[in-house]
Write a protein that binds this DNA or RNA. Structure first.
Lengths: 154, 154
DNA sequence: TCTCAAATAAGAATTTTTCTTATCTGGATA
DNA sequence: TATCCAGATAAGAAAAATTCTTATTTGAGA
């Protein structure tokens, strides 16, 4: 990602649907500059504090949340913080519903096979792959009902 | 997953390399019974407390961590807990190194295309897919050096 | 059964995140 | 440009999540 100047940053924030306040601009700027680094809210706060001594950690949290809501930025999938556990160690994927916050198992042998084959053909230098996972993010249309994913009969 | 009796649970714990204590057995049992539910440590604790009033939350945390370490269970990838943020909203995957805890961007147009095509052919009932992500988990062989993933010239 | 390294309970401490409230500000409007 | 106000922020309290400490207990090998 190319570096963006303040006006470009401002514009993106506005386009996403938020007021371009000073705090939001510097938070977004920090995140763009940290491209590839996936900082935490705390880390963003520490980055900003020297040049913005009056910014508060609460604002950083709130700002990042707003950005995620307007799809200006994303949360990175992580097992690091590791809140949720699963006894099923077989390869399987997960569906995440943004509305209900549910994480639903999604077993799709064809998908696993496709990816296994794909990664078998990739040459990994300095990395030993132990597992892979796919996560689908989206929304249930009817929260009460089940999700069903099937092959389209072609 | 089929239900397991206490002896089967005990055996799996031992095979994974841990002493089969009473607490570990009931924690593992709870997790197996919650198949598909991905409970948090707190939730496991609440499930166990009625029948095991003396178990402590700290033990549940520690036990789950041990299980993850021996690969008896997994942590579920999650953006819910959402510690880390990324300004790059283009479709891209992440590589997670268990050793260094790094999350490294992995852009692979071919992989994205493969999955886009795949999901286009799937019929989703009651789910509107907004995005998907792949995460590779594994280890850097040489922590200092970069990872490089390339196509095998066939 | 005895022994002891390892595991646990209890709760303190720390860290992370959210909430509350008084104050401030971006930008719409006059 | 000055005024206004809904929405944003700072500060810090509060809550929630996680880790740590220490005395006690326990599983399993001798």
């Amino acid at each position: 990602m190319q570096l963006l100047n303040r006006n470009e940053l401002r514009e993106r924030i506005v386009i996403s649907g938020l007021k371009a306040t000073q705090q939001r601009i510097v938070v977004y700027e920090a995140l763009v500059q940290q491209h590839g680094h996936h900082p935490t809210a705390e880390e963003v706060y520490q980055l900003l504090k020297p040049a913005n001594p009056s910014i508060s950690l609460g604002t950083v949290y709130k700002t990042l949340d707003s950005f995620v809501e307007t799809n200006l930025i994303r949360r990175v999938l992580s097992e690091e913080s590791g809140k949720r556990y699963d006894a099923n160690t077989m390869a399987h994927s997960h569906i995440y519903c943004s509305n209900t916050k549910e994480i639903i198992d999604y077993e799709d042998a064809e998908l696993e096979q496709l990816l296994t084959d794909f990664f078998r053909k990739r040459n990994m230098e300095n990395f030993e792959i132990k597992s892979f996972a796919v996560q689908l993010t989206g929304n249930k249309k009817e929260p009460g009902k089940q999700i069903r994913i099937s092959q389209v009969p072609k």
